[in-house]
């Protein structure tokens, strides 16, 4: 029962009581005897905060004596924290950079990489739009404002209406990095405050184009048309789906990683294993991402 004192305020009375009950039954006492951590921290990618929080919640429900604290701040912040030893796990929506890896080895930290989920972004247009494939380069030109008309990409002679998420969105930055090659979005792009507004606008504006997370696009596929994307002129147009994102065929996708310092051990390993378990991967799907295996 001693752990009750250390639990964070967020835990409700109900959870505390369940926790107490479990401890008394002995479900978790073994862990305590082994002297493992009861408190682990996950820090990093803002894109992943929602996902990791869902994992943490489910994990804490199964292991009531363990507290998992989840914070965002960005992948870079997370990796820095891992190197400085201020977090147990780093959540990153990109691979660790060479520079960071060298810095890690200097500090005698050996980052251990685990891909735990995949994230795909679907490009959506109005159902009546005849354009049925776009290359990454065409997308880049459309969103940076170099292509202004649909006729330039095989559609009718109509002006493209570019819709984007707000700049605070992780998807905005991901799309900017992956598709726009880190160029700025065009100034005339409409920045909408939510994914639902993008779906709403694309479904009513005939010549609009926008991007949303795969999960949302599939859920709204009766209102909008998902455009298959070609990596370059010669490659085939790929429709985003769980399979194509998983296999890497769909180009606007990225793996999401967890990094630990060295191979995960103890509670950290339990948590990572949980994320990769069938139950953890089910949470991945429910949160709107693609399961890794």
């Amino acid at each position: 029962m001693a752990n009750k004192k250390t639990t964070i305020v967020r835990v409700t009375v109900v959870v505390v009581l369940t926790c107490a009950a479990f401890t008394m039954i002995g479900g978790c006492s073994k862990r305590g005897e082994q002297g493992q951590d009861r408190f682990i921290t996950v820090k990093g990618s803002d894109t992943m905060v929602h996902l990791v929080s869902n994992w943490a919640e489910a994990f804490m429900k199964k292991h009531p004596d363990i507290e998992v604290s989840v914070t965002g701040g960005g992948s870079g912040t997370g990796i820095a924290a891992l190197l400085n030893g201020t977090t147990d796990i780093c959540a990153a929506s990109r691979k660790i950079k060479d520079k960071e890896l060298m810095l890690a080895l200097e500090k005698n930290v050996h980052p251990y990489e685990m891909a735990v989920a995949k994230d795909g972004i679907a490009v959506v247009v109005h159902p009546d739009n005849p354009v049925d494939k776009l290359t990454l380069e065409q997308l880049s030109k459309i969103f940076t404002g170099k292509t202004m008309r649909w006729s330039d990409v095989g559609g009718p002679n109509e002006e493209v209406e570019v819709l984007s998420r707000e700049s605070s969105s992780g998807t905005y930055i991901f799309f900017q990095e992956m598709v726009l090659n880190k160029q700025d979005y065009m100034q005339d792009a409409k920045l909408l405050p939510a994914t639902s507004s993008i779906i709403q606008s694309v479904s009513s504006d005939k010549w609009a184009i926008g991007y949303v997370g795969l999960g949302y696009a599939v859920a709204a596929s009766d209102k909008v048309k998902i455009v298959p994307v070609k990596k370059d002129d010669s490659s085939p147009a790929i429709m985003p789906s769980d399979e194509t994102v998983k296999s890497g065929a769909y180009p606007i996708a990225r793996p999401l990683y967890l990094y630990t310092s060295g191979q995960p051990k103890g509670t950290v390993k339990d948590f990572v294993d949980f994320c990769l378990s069938a139950e953890g991967q089910q949470i991945v799907k429910e949160t709107g991402y693609v399961a890794i295996n």
């Binding site: 803002d46 960005g74 707000e166 700049s167 605070s168 969105s169 100034q187 005339d188 792009a189 409409k190 920045l191 909408l192 405050p193």
Partner: peptide, 29 residues
């Protein structure tokens, strides 16, 4: 529509000061 462009046309998208603060304050470092 929140596009940060300078225009005098009522038929174009504009971004107001209030919307900018509301949309961006949440995630800013």
């Amino acid at each position: 529509g929140n596009a940060a462009v300078i225009t005098a046309s009522p038929f174009e998208s504009v971004r107001t000061m209030t919307a900018t603060i509301a949309a961006e304050m949440g995630e800013v470092a």
